[in-house]
Amino acid sequence: MRNFIKWITSAKVNKVLCIITFMFVPLALLTVFTYIPFGKMIGFSFYDMKYIGDREFVGLKNYAEVFSRDDCFKALKLSLYYIAASFVQLGLALYFATLLSFKTKGGGIFKGLMFFPYLVCGIAVGFIFKFFYTRGFVLDTVLQWCGFNLDNLPYWLKDTSINNISVAATSVWRYMGQNMVLFIGAIMSVDAEMYEAAAIDGAGGWQKFRYIIFPSISTIIVLNLILAITGSLSVFEPPYVITGGNFGTGTYFVIMDKLAHASQKVGLASAMAIVLLVIILIATLLQKLFFRYFIGEGEHEAIRAVRKRKKREALAAAGNGGVQS
């Protein structure tokens, strides 16, 4: 018995025990709720099947259909709206974050007001914006105050030239403040002395932003860009809760949802999901390479910068370089 206790408390065994017990629950959950369903979904994609009844193995037919249907990839084009929206969102967030990191009267209130939409539930967003965009309601009224004539205003959710922008704007509304707070946090973590030094050098606001703030938070900006672009490919909620995907606002996932539930084409919908997943993976990889090359990521320097420097170093033939921080 004593031996057993000794054995169990011995560092090595204890370590193994610790690894196993600590990892068991999360890994079990990950397997049960992510990877088993994922495997099943891959399986579904090779079948012609409904939720009920017989299934029939059809090989790659579902995949062929995803590529030959005109609505699937047309829907992916809508992602451009959401990518554009996420650029606007990040730009605004960066702008406001910079403003608010310096002394501003009422800064806390502005920050709070702009952050608040992040806390609103998705269903509520649907209700709120249907109301907001209704003809003659909120948006139209405000624009009329500004001197617009109602007759010249579009139908925000009906006109196909603008409705995707309307819907994408709601996602800017919702997440801009959260991005802003993230950026403020990142800016705040920059050493205050740097600003002081810059001020002594007579740097203006823009210079401070360009040379101190931006470089020091570029990592998090890049990270958010990557998330924004992959997120834009798989947009579901805004059109789902606001327009139901009608009038050309159906994104890839909304179309998939319709196929799966209104037409019971589970196999096809699963194939669509897998195709999108592959696209997202490729997009993520490309972006990573891209950013690694031009800007650098995390603690790695940009590859381009490294090359330049190496070239310089080689030219100077100096032996003291090469420190990769």
Binding site: Y51, I52, D257, K258, A260
Partner: peptide, 15 residues
């Protein structure tokens, strides 16, 4: 009904 994610899924078990 048919739109129903839920409903539809259940039926796989009904079967």
């Amino acid at each position: 009904l048919a739109l129903a994610l839920t409903g539809a899924m259940t039926l796989s078990f009904a079967g």
